[in-house]
Structure formats: C-alpha cells, structure tokens
Write a protein that binds this DNA or RNA. Structure first.
Lengths: 348, 348
DNA sequence: GTAGTGAGCCAAAACGTTTTGGACAAGCGC
DNA sequence: GCGCTTGTCCAAAACGTTTTGGCTCACTAC
C-alpha cells in the first residue's frame, strides 16, 4: 500500500500543473473573477485530474461558511456523564436534526455547553446553532450572540423576551389538554410534578397549571423534582404524597401529571406498592413520552413531544435564517397526546 | 443592544493588552515554550479578562486536531431523502455516539457520504471517522485512508480483509442463535429473508444460514429484498411464498427469519391476511429490533442490536486509535435476542 | 501618436494561529 | 574582559485559501 504522499494536494499544485497563478485557479474553480473560458476549463480539468479539493479549514479562515450546524442539548449538559437511559427524546431529536441537516448538505455537529470553557473550539466556527431547551437567561445564547452566530432555540429562554427565533412546541392549550383529559375522566384532585431545571417547559407547565387551578378554585398541588433523579425521584414524590395523606395533612390526589416520563413511572410503581390501583384509584399521565411510559404496567398516557417533527422544524428555521430570511415567523409544532391504560376510565 | 464589535477577539488583542508578543501569548496559553511564570500568569489573566479563546479554524490550519469525530451511516446514504421511519436503529446509534464523544470532549459531526462530492468539505478535516455498516470495497474508506484520516467501522468491509479496525457485533453463533431458537420451538422449514445492500450484515447472515442448512441437509430457502422497501417489501416476499405454495412448487416455510424488522412486520401481516396464524402455523423472527417488531400484533421476536453499546464501543475504540494506541484489539459487542409472542411456542 | 478601455492574468495581503530560529541580557567561570 | 550558558522574549515564516489592487497587452477613439 504505497501511501500517495502525506502531502495533500493544494491549490498551488493545481496552479503549477496548469501553468497559472493560484489566483486564477481560485477564480476558475469558484467562478469568481474574469478568466478566459479556455483557461478556466483547463484549470478545472487539471484540478479534477490531480484530485484537488479545497481545504475547508483554510477556506473557513477567510470567513467562508463551513457547512456545519451546531446542536446543543441543554438538559444533557448537567449530567455528570451522559447516560443513554431516559434521554431517548433527545436522541431522537438529535438523529432527526442530523438527517434534516444532511438532507440540505450540512453536517450537524453535536457539542457540549460552549461556555463551559474547554471544548471543541470549532464550535464557535459553525454556521449556526440550535439550542434545545435553553435555561433562563442562558449563557450559551449570550455567548453565541456575542460571537454573531445565528441561533434558533427549541423552547424559549424565559428571561430573554426580546429573542424571537425559537421553535414553539405545544401550547397552553396543549398543557391544559392533559389536565382536561384527566378531568373528563372523573379526576377531582389533580397534582402536578415538574422538574427543577429553569427552562420554559417547566415554567410554563407550572404557570398554566396554577392558572387552571385558580380559575376553578382547585387546590394547587405542585411538586418539583430534579429531572435527573429518574424513577427514584418519582418514587420519592409518591412517598411525600403518601406521608402527607397518612398524617392527615393532605388528601391523596386522584390524578397525577408528571412532566417527566421516568418520574411518572417511578411514582406509579410506588403507589401500586402502597396498594393503590392505576387507573381506578389514581390516574397518571406524563408530559413526555418515553420508553418508561410505554413499558410501564400499565402503560402511561403521555404527551408525545414529536422530537422528529420538532427537530426538522428547528433545522429548517435555522437554514432559512442563514439564507438571510429574517422575515418568516417562528414555527409551531403540535404535540400529540397518546392515551394509554393509566388513564383508561370512562368519559364523564 | 450595542453589538460588542463584529471583530472577534484575537491573539493580537491579548498580546497588545498584556504588552507582549503573540508568540508569548501562544506559548503562555498552551504551556509550550519557556515563559517567566509572572508573564505567563499575566497573559492568562488578560486573556480571560478580555474573553479570548483561540480560533479553532486558524488552529486547524496549522494541522492541529479539531476535536471533532465524523460519523457516516452508510445504510442511510442511498435513501433519496432520509426518513425518520424505519431508521430508529441508526438514530439511537448516532445519539449514543454523540453522547460518548461529548463525554470525552469531542464534538460529533454527522455527514453524508464524502465521496459523493459536494458536501461539508470540512468532513476531511475532522480527527477521525466512524463508518457504520460499510459496503463491500467501500469508497468512503478508500477516500479517508487516502487522506490519512483514522477510521473505525462498525461491521467489516467484506472486500477489505486487511482492514482491522472494526467493531464486531453479533457472531456466527448469534446468527445461529435465532435459527436454533426456531428449531427448538419445532420449526422444520426455516426461510431467511435478507436485504440487498452489499454489507457484512447481509453477507454473513446469508453465509451462516447456508452453512447451517448444508450441515443439516435442510432446503436453502433464501429471499433477498431491498432494505428500503419497508413493510411493503415484506408483504411482497410473503406474496412470493404464498404463490409458490399455491402452485405446488414449494411448500410454505413454518418459520421465517427476516433480517429487517420492517420486512418481518409486513410479511407477518400478509401471512395473517392469508389465514395463517402466528406463531402456531408460522413463526416469525427479525434480525433487527425496531418500532415495528415491538408494535406488531403479535410482537415479533428479534435481535436487539444494542445500538447504544455498539456506538460507545466504536467511539472508545476510535479515541484509543487517535491517542496512538494501535495495539488494542477490535471490540466485540454482544447482541441480545428478545423473545416475543411471534415465536411463543413450547420448547421441544 | 496618445489616451482610454477592457480582457486576462497575477503578486501580495489577509485570515488567526503555531512554530522556528534567533536576539538580547544577565550571570558565570576563566 | 571574554566566551559560554541560560532565561526570556520576539519577528517572521508557515498553514491554504480568497480577495484586493494592480499590471500588461491589444484594441479603439480621437
């Protein structure tokens, strides 16, 4: 196997072979300056013959676009170590985003929080960024704006109202849809379990639940539990509820809406162990469909956040922005409520 | 919002602020040359103060590693347009690979076939590549080798025996495991349905089935169907089998092993429509677990290719190679056979 | 003849780093 | 004093492009 020389073929090689200057080569290949047709053709042929392709790095140095989109998935940032379990929404999101970017001739680069310092310095050289579920006043957004890198977020930064380029998924209506579905099936006391990350997803869910409770004079039964606590976290919330009921402090809810699928699964398990039947005694629903909600016994009704559609919308939106279209408005992606056995009661 | 100047802060800015040369800045920041401790500290402080971080592109120009791994998923290349349906194995693979790369401080860039011409020229500038399911004599491998870019493949290139850096998943034993499981449950005539891509997965499955058939004097019932044909392709194979049986040319098999989950699902449907019961009349198994095999009625027994574990193994292996470790041998990832109702018969 | 025009080409600058090959000064041994 | 070493620092080259600002030549218009 004779290594065809460590030296990559450069624009100088083409120039030498074609007997012209590198300027002429560059112009010929990029269709830029004025070059005689014959010369241009000769250069093109020579380039193909000796297998030349412009070094993207050198090109990038001059400020040309790299043909790469960056993707940051915020909820994954805080994990000590990324774990496959319980992050299937984001994996599907990332996969679909990649597919959509590839389909438009772009590479998709997944990176960690660029503000964390260290990592792939090249992150700041990509053409644009998608940030999934930014936290409030997200420093990543600040950093990217400071570097003039176009951004599209999925879910808004709650503390940055002036920022408009975000993909909206679900609506107040949708969040109410879960609560309404529970009410329609006879729920009288509905509890909400949110995560603790300071993102729009948690904030808005909390807000719309409280609004709903206020409108109906319903008790506000809200619990917060760290997203990363998984099923154990769900069990812990169940424990709290059971203890409060036992102590006579607070009646047990008859329906529970957990934003996180894993919380819902753990909570359901613990309640079942305590002798409660799902859905006849207590109904359970999750705000985020996952392996756990699908495979629990019984399977848990949940909101399918349609990661594929959301990712596609985000990529398309970012590409429009990169093409200079600052007009088109933010896309909206409709979630889908998947009814399963955990809320399987007759409609009122 | 006063834009803090379009101009990114460069090494020259740091040099000016700290009152030293850019050489000293570079040395100080990278811990390279000899610099007085006091000076080094001053430079570091200045850099942090004015928010300097080295431009990875410029750095890359000098031949320094970029901190990015490339990923090419071959079976996705031939699709006219990437479709989310039916590619869940690869999405999970890509997601897990990204997670693993990120965990080691690398970005993961997903790209399309670099030999196709056009695309992200930067593809050839990444530090290393993972190629999932290369085709026979894969031109992508040739291109990357020609450019001295380290590669790790998942599944071997059947026509490139000298290439050793590939992750093995499943074994002849494993492939026989499916056939054996069918035999254990009373199957007498087992058919194999493979895809048509020229990769190791198809070739090896075909080979080990024929070996098994030869050893036992069993008829060779092999069908090939394009991977991209999906459930319709599975139905078409069923149609062939039914027609041959009707014409008295060939008895219907009593167990069918489809490598592709979607083929299995379509085939099962068509056979059921023709009045056959699964698993009592005919058993069905798939070589690749997917949404379709899990959600068919009945659910189909299949091989879980454990994409997460495979991706992790591939990334770790590539990183070891990048660190200069040419010793460690190729990793092997063990697949898992998931038994479901489609083969639910008493063991003999 | 001279000035002006345009076509075709090129040398050199620029992009932001890293690295090479010194320069300079101080300290030391003689 | 002289040479050598050592500790600091820096100017300039190099990486491979794209782009700027010419230069040269042939032709035209006066």
């Amino acid at each position: 196997m004779p290594r065809p020389s460590r030296h990559r073929v450069t624009i100088h090689d083409v120039a030498r072979h074609a007997g012209v200057s590198i300027t002429t080569v560059s112009h010929s290949l990029n269709g830029k300056g004025v070059v005689a047709d014959a010369t241009r053709q000769r250069v093109i042929d020579t380039a193909k013959e000796i297998g030349y392709s412009a070094n993207a790095i050198a090109r990038g140095l001059r400020g040309n676009p790299l043909g790469v989109l960056g993707l940051v998935i915020r909820p994954l940032e805080d994990l000590d170590s990324y774990q496959p379990e319980g992050v299937d929404y984001f994996m599907r999101f990332a996969g679909a985003a990649a597919v959509e970017a590839l389909d438009h001739g772009f590479g998709l680069m997944l990176v960690r929080d660029p503000t964390a310092g260290a990592l792939p310095g090249i992150a700041l050289a990509v053409d644009g960024f998608i940030i999934s579920d930014p936290v409030a006043n997200d420093p990543v957004i600040a950093l990217l704006i400071r570097n003039d890198i176009p951004i599209v977020t999925v879910g808004r930064d709650t503390e940055r109202p002036e920022f408009r380029d975000w993909v909206e998924t679900g609506t107040t209506t949708d969040r109410r849809a879960v609560v309404n579905a529970l009410v329609d099936r006879g729920a009288k006391r509905i509890a909400l379990v949110t995560g603790t990350d300071s993102n729009a997803w948690n904030a808005d869910s909390d807000l719309s639940y409280r609004q709903w409770a206020a409108e109906l004079g319903h008790d506000e039964l809200v619990y917060h539990q760290d997203e990363r606590s998984g099923e154990a976290g769900g069990r812990a919330v169940a424990e709290l509820m059971l203890a409060a009921a036992l102590a006579g402090e607070q009646e047990l809810p008859d329906a529970i809406y957990c934003l996180t699928g894993r919380h819902a699964a753990g909570l359901q398990q613990r309640l079942q162990e305590a002798g409660y039947r799902i859905p006849s005694d207590i109904m359970i629903a999750a705000g985020s469909d996952s392996e756990q909600t699908r495979n629990s016994t019984p399977p848990i009704t949940s909101v399918d956040l349609v990661p594929e559609a959301t990712a596609k919308a985000a990529v398309d939106f970012l590409l429009r922005r990169l093409e200079g279209d600052t007009e088109s408005s933010s896309p909206f992606v409709q979630n889908v409520l998947r009814f399963r056995e955990s809320t399987n009661r007759p409609l009122l």
